[in-house]
C-alpha cells in the first residue's frame, strides 16, 4: 500500500520509531489529525518523524483508513469487525496508543468500543487477569469500594 501511494508526487513521508519510512497520500495523512497539523505547520516535502508509533501500528492504521472506504455500510462494518478481530490484546493496546497519538478519529470511536466490549459483564478478578493489571489497592481500600457498590458486583459472566 505504501508503494502505491508513493506514485503520487505529493505523497507525505512518515518515519516510524523503528526507522521505517511510509509514504502516504494526502487523503490518508489528513485523516490523522496530528499529521494534518504538522503538514500545515511545516513544508510537506519534509519527512515527519513519529516518536510514538512503530511500523506495525502505522501499517495497521493505513490499512484501516484504506479499507474502510468500502462502498456499503455493511461492507464497512464487516471490514471493521475483521480488522479488530485480527488484533491480539497486546496489539490492540499498542495500536490504541498510536491512534490516540495520531488522533485518527474513526479509530478513536471503534477501538474504545471494542475494549469496552471486553470489559462488559466481567468480574474484577477476571479483568485484572485478562488485562494483566496488578491490584494496587490496599485490602481495606478495595473492601470499601466493594462495600459501597456491592450491587454492581453480582451478575457477571463466569470467569
Amino acid at each position: 500500500m505504501a508503494e502505491k501511494a508513493s506514485e503520487s508526487s505529493n505523497s507525505i513521508s512518515l518515519n516510524t520509531v523503528d526507522g521505517k519510512i511510509f509514504k502516504v497520500s494526502p487523503t490518508i495523512a489528513n485523516q490523522m489529525q496530528t499529521i494534518q497539523s504538522l503538514i500545515k505547520a511545516y513544508d510537506s516535502s519534509r519527512v515527519i518523524s513519529l516518536p510514538h508509533v512503530n511500523a506495525f501500528h502505522l501499517s495497521k492504521i493505513i490499512e484501516y483508513l484504506e479499507g474502510k472506504s468500502a462502498t456499503t455500510v455493511s461492507a464497512v462494518k464487516e471490514f471493521e469487525a475483521q480488522f479488530m478481530k485480527d488484533l491480539s490484546l497486546k496489539q490492540l493496546k499498542g495500536l490504541l496508543i498510536a491512534v490516540g497519538y495520531l488522533k485518527v478519529n474513526e479509530l478513536l470511536e471503534l477501538m474504545p468500543k471494542t475494549v469496552a466490549k471486553l470489559i462488559e459483564n466481567k468480574s474484577v478478578e477476571f479483568l485484572r487477569k485478562f488485562f494483566g493489571i496488578v491490584n494496587d489497592f490496599t485490602p481495606s481500600e478495595e473492601a470499601k469500594i466493594r462495600e459501597e457498590i456491592a450491587w454492581a458486583f453480582d451478575g457477571v459472566d463466569e470467569d
Binding site: 474504545p112 462488559e120 479483568l127 469500594i145 457498590i149
Partner: peptide
Amino acid sequence: TWSDLPVELLELIFSRLTLDNNIRASAVC
C-alpha cells in the same frame, strides 16, 4: 500496561460502559 494507558484513552473506553460495568472497572486498580 492497560493500567497506565493515557487518561484520554481510558476515558473514551470507560465512557462507553454502563454503570455496573463502570463500577466493576473502578475496582480493578
